[in-house]
Design a protein around this nucleic acid. Structure first.
Length: 298
DNA sequence: AGTAATCCTCAAGTTACTTCA
DNA sequence: GATGAAGTAACTTGAGGATTA
């Protein structure tokens, strides 16, 4: 499976913003074949790809369309499931995706059923002598697979012209090339979905663990808050200090921060200037007035 | 210009066949 | 050899876009 994954050229492509800042992020994903946006479904991606391939060569597409339309006018009703002969192949070089007609809606089923009998009587070109009843499954050769894969890497959709050329090159029916690309896109999407799911699962696990850790921390802090003597002896990591004389408040990270702006502006000789007062201590001494009001008063 | 019919292509889902452990 | 799982070619269905009468 992993080997297949490599064959498909798939890799993690989901970026989790939370985890980018996470102290224990998951192993960095390899460069994505196509970036996954959680707001963008794979379908949207595919559609965008299709649009891209269409837009990239509008002239060619319209030319193909022209060829198609010309061909369609006199090649209707061709049995596309019929085994390919050399003549057929020449015709298929003209008509685009003949078997799409089969998969299309309007009255195609009966047409196909008619073809079944004919197909049964004349075994396929690739047929090695098996029974002709039911659908005959062709196994693509290694060379065909390689070429298809290479083409798929270049563009995951084909316009009619490309399809015909590829079919000719590989000695396949255009319909087979078309089906192969459809299935290949489906496989790519499936693999990508699996990879994305796995990555999301890991994200979820990490966030759960982080949540558990933070909950534990919160509980510890609660316990700490409930034991006053312990709390009072503790020097807080960040200490608000205030000069009782000038009532200026400053933030210092340790005792060494006595050179903060508040103390610098006061008399450095005074002993109480050197000792940071924990918020809980001095706050109790301050009358319930806004600092600004008291400052204005003085 | 609006509309219905037709065709094509696609994604999604399914079926049936092949291969392999 | 039988069997079940996995892979995949081929098929079906429905939607949407383009073209044409």
């Amino acid at each position: 499976m992993a080997e297949k994954c490599n064959d498909l050229g798939l890799s993690l492509s989901l970026r989790c913003p939370q985890n980018e800042n996470h102290p224990h992020p998951p192993p960095p994903p390899p460069p994505p074949p196509f970036p996954l946006n959680l707001l963008q479904s794979p379908l949207a991606f595919m559609q965008r790809q299709n649009q891209k391939s269409s837009i990239s060569d509008p002239f060619q597409l319209s030319a193909d369309r022209h060829v198609e339309l010309e061909a369609r006018s006199f090649l209707r009703g061709i049995d596309v499931n019929r085994p390919i002969t050399v003549t057929d192949r020449e015709e298929e070089m003209i008509v685009s995706s003949p078997n799409s007609t089969v998969s299309s809606v309007s009255g195609k089923r009966s047409e196909r059923e008619e073809n079944e009998a004919e197909r049964a009587s004349s075994s396929m070109e690739e047929d090695d002598g098996g029974d002709a009843a039911g659908r005959k499954k062709l196994r693509l050769t290694k060379e065909q697979g390689v070429v298809l894969e290479e083409t798929f890497k270049e563009h995951n959709t084909l316009n009619p012209k490309q399809k015909l050329a590829l079919a000719k090159q590989l000695n396949l029916r255009p319909r087979q090339v078309e089906v192969w690309f459809q299935n290949r896109r489906a496989r790519t999407k499936l693999k990508q979905t699996e990879v994305d799911c796995e990555y999301l699962r890991r994200c979820c696990e990490n966030l759960t663990e982080e949540n558990r850790r933070l909950q534990k921390e919160v509980n510890e802090l609660r316990v700490l808050k409930l034991s006053p003597q312990f709390y009072m002896n503790m020097s807080p990591p960040t200490t608000l200090t205030m000069c009782p004389q000038c009532e200026r408040v400053a933030v210092s990270s340790s005792l060494a921060a006595t050179t903060s702006s508040a103390t610098r502006q006061c008399n450095p000789v005074a002993a109480h200037h050197q000792r940071p007062i924990p918020v809980t201590s001095w706050a109790a001494m301050i009358p319930p007035q806004p600092l600004d009001a008291r400052r204005h008063k003085s």
